[in-house]
Design a protein around this nucleic acid. Structure first.
Length: 562
DNA sequence: TCGGCAATAT
DNA sequence: TATATTGCCG
C-alpha cells in the first residue's frame, strides 16, 4: 500500500499559543499539502493525541521562555509521534531539554519553507526506527508505505538507490548498497529521538558504527552538523553493522575521535554529529536480515567524510585502522609473504571501496618494515642483554616472539612485533609503533595471534611450543613450519604467522646458546636435565661420572658444565 | 593491467 | 616524522 504523493496529506498537530503566528505556521504547512490541526493549549493537544492517536503523524509545538513546562509535558506525553519544537528562543538548555525529552528537532523561528517542508523525514524516521510494539497507529501506515516503496523500487529498477549512492559516493559508488543502508543513516542527527533513559543506554551499545570505530574518519571541515534542510548533502554513514558491538567506552572514544579529528569546535551544533549519535536499530535490523558479508565488509570503510563538493571530490585517504590492517595482515599471511600481491590481498580482504593501489601502498610499507626494522631490531636487542646477563642480572632477552615469562606462566604483558599484531590503537598510539614493541592490551576482537605460544624447552634445550600442545621442535634445526604442517587442524593463519623470520630467530637463539654454554640461557630455553646430560655423555663414551639420580635435575644454567 | 618502487602529499 | 597517495617504469 503505497501512499501516493507522500508526504502530501501528512497529518500535523500544531500547538502554538500565539494565534497570529499559529495561523501563519498553519498556512505555511498547508501550502505544502500537510493537513494541520491547530491547538492553542497543551491540554487540548494532549487530549487530541490521547483520544485519536491515529489522527496525527507528527507534532509541531512551540516552546516559549514563559511557558516551557507545558511543552516539556507535551514531549513527555507524546512520545509516540515525532515532535518538532519551534521557538524564538536560542536558549541552549531549553533546546537540550527538548531534544532530551525526545524532540525530533528544534527549529528556530522564523520558520522557512525549507525547514517545514522536510518535516516528513522525521515521520519516516520515527516510523522506521520505533520498535514494532511501540509503533503508533498513525505511523504504521507510514512504515508500510516506506517499506513497500523501497521494495518496489528495488524490484523494478534493481540498483536504483545504488545509482543514487554512486552519484554521491563517486568512485566508491560501485559498492553494493541497499536502500536499507540509507535508512539506517538519518540525514540529520536531530532525527534521533534519543530519550534518556533507558533508550540512551540501549542505543549506546547497539548502534555504534563499526565503521566509525574501526576507521576513524577524516571528516572534511565542510562536514558541519546537518539539519533537515541539508538534503542535498546527505553523507553516507553506514551505521548499521550490528555484529560487533564495541563497549560503551570505545563508543565514546570513537566519538571523541570523530570530533577531534574533525577539528570542529564542540558547540551546540557540532557536538551532535551524525554517526557519533546512536541510532536505534530495532526496525532497521528487521528489514536488514539479508545483509551479507559484502555489506558488512563494506561498512569497514567509512566514507562519510567524503562529503562536500560532489563533482570536485578528491580521493580520500584510507585510514588503515587496526581492524583494516588486521585484515590486511591476515590476507598477507594467508597468501604467504611471497605470494602476497596487492590484487590477491585485496581479494582476500573483501573490503569494498579499498583499491589495489591502497593495498599496494600498504604492502610496500609492510614489506619495508619487515625487511628493515625487524632484523635490525633483533640484533640490536639481543646483544645488550647478553651483557646484562654477564653482570649477573636476570637474563631478559626481548624477543619479538614468543613472549617469555620468568615463571613460564602466562605473560602479563604481551610483547608484539610492530607489524604483525596491530590490534588496538588508542589515541596517540601508533599502529605500527616505532622499531620497537608496544605493550599490548587485549583487543576487543579475537585474533589468531593474540597470544604467542609459550616456549619451554625439551630435554635438549630446544624450544617447545607448549601452549597448543602439538607443536614441538624436535631439534634446533628442524623448521617449525614442517612441524606445523603436520597439524592440519590448526589455524592456518597461525601456522603462516610463523614465517621464516621467526624460525630463523629461534635458530639463532639456540645456536648462540649452544656455542656459548658459559652464558646463562635466555629464557625460553632450558638447560637439559641431568639425566639427559648423563645419558648423552654415556653415549659418547664418557662414563667417569656418578650414576644418574632422579633428584639431580637442577637446570641452573650457571652450574651447567661446571 | 599489474606490481613495485620512489617521489610527493598530508 | 609517519603514513598515505601518486606517478612512473618494467
Amino acid at each position: 500500500m503505497v501512499w501516493k504523493d507522500f508526504p502530501k496529506g501528512l497529518k500535523i498537530l500544531l500547538l502554538q499559543k500565539d494565534e497570529a503566528s499559529a495561523a501563519e505556521t498553519k498556512s505555511k504547512l498547508e501550502e505544502m499539502d500537510y493537513l494541520v490541526s491547530l491547538y492553542h493549549s497543551e491540554e487540548d493537544a494532549l487530549e487530541a493525541i490521547s483520544k485519536e492517536a491515529e489522527s496525527f503523524h507528527v507534532a509541531v509545538v512551540e516552546v516559549t521562555a514563559s511557558d516551557s513546562c507545558g511543552t516539556f509535558r507535551f514531549l513527555e506525553m507524546a512520545q509516540d509521534i515525532p515532535t518538532i519544537v519551534i521557538s524564538d528562543e536560542h536558549c541552549l538548555s531549553t533546546m537540550m531539554k527538548c531534544i532530551a525529552l525526545g524532540a525530533a528537532e528544534f527549529l528556530q523561528k522564523p520558520l522557512s519553507e525549507d525547514k517545514l517542508r522536510n518535516i516528513w523525514q522525521h515521520v519516516v524516521h520515527k516510523a522506521l526506527n520505533a520498535g514494532g510494539s511501540v509503533l503508533s497507529k498513525s505511523l504504521k501506515p507510514i512504515k508500510d508505505t516506506v517499506v513497500s516503496m523501497l521494495q518496489i523500487q528495488s524490484e523494478t529498477s534493481e540498483h536504483k538507490i545504488e545509482e543514487k549512492v554512486t552519484e554521491i559516493d563517486g568512485k566508491y559508488g560501485h559498492e553494493k548498497t541497499t536502500a536499507n543502508d540509507r535508512l539506517s543513516a538519518p540525514s540529520t542527527p536531530q532525527l534521533e529521538r534519543g530519550r534518556f533513559p533507558p533508550d540512551r543506554e540501549f542505543q549506546d551499545v547497539t548502534c555504534c558504527s563499526v565503521a566509525k570505530e574501526l576507521l576513524q574518519p577524516r571528516k572534511s571541515s565542510s562536514s558541519a552538523s546537518k539539519s533537515v534542510e541539508n538534503t542535498c548533502d546527505n553523507s553516507i554513514s553506514v551505521a548499521n553493522t550490528v555484529d560487533a558491538l564495541p563497549s560503551k567506552a570505545e563508543h565514546i572514544a570513537a566519538e571523541e575521535e570523530v570530533n577531534s579529528v574533525d577539528g570542529s569546535k564542540t558547540d551546540e551544533c557540532s557536538s551532535v554529529k551524525e554517526g557519533s549519535l546512536p541510532s536505534d536499530l530495532h526496525s532497521v535490523e528487521n528489514i536488514e536480515s539479508h545483509a551479507d558479508d559484502v555489506q558488512k565488509n563494506k561498512s569497514i570503510l567509512d566514507y562519510s567524510y567524503l562529503n562536500g563538493d560532489r563533482n570536485n571530490r578528491k580521493k580520500t585517504k584510507v585510514d588503515w585502522t587496526p581492524e583494516l590492517h588486521r585484515r590486511f595482515v591476515q590476507a598477507v599471511e594467508q597468501l604467504g609473504i611471497e605470494q602476497a600481491i596487492p590484487s590477491k590481498i585485496l581479494e582476500l580482504m573483501k573490503v569494498e571501496g579499498l583499491t589495489r593501489h591502497n593495498v599496494a601502498s600498504h604492502l610496500q610499507k609492510y614489506r619495508m618494515h619487515r625487511r628493515h626494522i625487524l632484523p635490525k631490531d633483533q640484533d640490536r636487542r639481543w646483544q645488550p642483554h647478553r651483557l646484562s646477563t654477564a653482570r649477573g642480572c636476570v637474563p631478559r632477552p626481548i624477543l619479538a616472539y614468543p613472549p617469555y615469562h620468568p615463571n613460564c606462566g602466562a605473560p602479563t604483558n604481551q610483547i608484539y612485533p610492530v607489524w604483525g599484531h596491530p590490534n588496538y590503537r588508542s589515541h596517540g598510539v601508533q599502529m605500527w609503533g616505532h622499531a620497537g614493541y608496544t605493550t599490548w592490551h587485549p583487543p576487543p576482537q579475537s585474533w589468531p595471534w593474540k597470544t604467542y605460544p609459550l616456549v619451554h624447552a625439551d630435554a635438549w634445550g630446544c624450544p617447545v611450543v607448549t601452549q597448543y600442545g602439538q607443536y614441538r621442535m624436535s631439534s634446533p634445526r628442524s623448521p617449525m613450519r614442517s612441524d606445523f604442517d603436520m597439524n592440519g587442524d590448526r589455524n592456518e593463519m597461525f601456522r603462516e604467522s610463523y614465517d621464516l623470520h621467526q624460525v630463523e630467530m629461534i635458530d639463532q637463539l639456540v645456536k648462540e646458546a649452544m656455542s656459548k654454554p658459559w652464558l646463562p640461557l635466555p629464557l625460553g630455553l632450558k638447560s637439559p636435565s641431568t639425566d639427559v646430560v648423563l645419558a648423552e655423555l654415556h653415549r659418547q663414551g664418557i662414563c667417569a661420572v656418578p650414576p644418574a639420580t632422579n633428584s639431580a635435575a637442577s637446570p641452573d644454567p650457571n652450574n651447567f658444565c661446571g
